[in-house]
């Protein structure tokens, strides 16, 4: 066989047009592929040449923006870093959306549930005393910004999250209970709780100790398997279960104050 012979592969893409379809369906495409093509490139080719209205999200093409999360042959993957050549031995490549989220159109899902969970864990440095309250400017700078390499090392792994939501797709507990905070949000809460510059751990643990916080997690661990950045959200959650216990205990002895952490859903999950 000649090396210049073109290679054709079948790619089935999940389609869903809200104005026409009752449910998603697979549309089959024949795609000529090359060694350097990613699944994202293949989708672009399909869109260019065969289905101009195909809708999907993408941006950086280099595994850093988190936009192109999809389910490729049953595995949650980033389309930009999944290569067609790796499926040369399969009959076909099936590309589906992250269906643990509501599907809006084709491969596009409603990520608002994730954004809400992200906001809920206050993913930013919280100081008891904001820098603006210091009268001495140098004092404010020293307390707010210094950190040793060892202090950074403690939480650095968890800063790598690109919010791609593959972990939410991997997690069966998210599928069972859509209210579960989920892997990434908890991992990011962990990132801030373990940042020496942060003073907001009590607030975050209050959210994480709710029924829908860390507790729906049963350490399946598949989230950490699929994470493209090796954040290990599963490990972060188990450590949170342990780390959060003293805060939980302490909060029993606090007076009934503000209700910034309250559960919308009473009872067991």
């Amino acid at each position: 066989m000649s090396k210049t012979m073109s290679k054709i592969i079948t790619i089935e893409v999940s389609r869903y047009r809200p104005e026409v379809d009752e449910k998603p369906w697979l549309q089959s495409f024949q795609v000529e592929w090359t060694q350097d093509m990613s699944v994202l490139d293949a989708l672009a080719q399909i869109k260019d040449e065969q289905a101009p209205e195909l809708a999907y999200r993408w941006s950086c093409r280099m595994e850093v923006c988190g936009s192109c999360g999809m389910v490729i042959n049953g595995e949650p993957k980033l389309a930009c870093s999944t290569f067609v050549r790796d499926f040369a031995d399969c009959d076909k490549i099936t590309v589906e959306p992250l269906d643990h989220f509501p599907i809006e159109k084709d491969l596009i899902v409603d990520i608002e549930p994730f954004i809400e969970k992200l906001n809920a864990v206050k993913p930013y440095i919280i100081k008891d005393k904001p820098a603006t309250e210091f009268t001495d400017v140098t004092q404010a700078g020293l307390t707010a910004h210094t950190q040793t390499p060892a202090e950074l090392a403690k939480f650095k792994q968890y800063t790598m999250c690109i919010n791609c939501m593959l972990c939410y797709q991997a997690c069966p507990q998210v599928a069972i209970n859509a209210e579960f905070l989920g892997p990434a949000a908890n991992a990011l809460a962990f990132r801030y709780n373990n940042d020496s510059r942060d003073e907001g751990a009590a607030q975050r643990f209050a959210i994480q100790n709710l029924d829908t916080g860390v507790w729906p997690c049963t350490f399946v661990g598949y989230c950490s398997e699929v994470c493209p950045k090796n954040v290990d959200p599963a490990g972060a959650i188990q450590q949170t279960k342990a780390q959060g216990a003293p805060y939980w205990l302490k909060s029993f002895f606090n007076s009934e104050g503000d209700s910034e952490a309250h559960s919308d859903k009473q009872g067991d999950q």
Partner: peptide, 14 residues
Amino acid sequence: MRKPYHSTEPANWY
């Protein structure tokens, strides 16, 4: 128009 589709996970997902 928006008509989000909600998938359901089968009981034998494992």
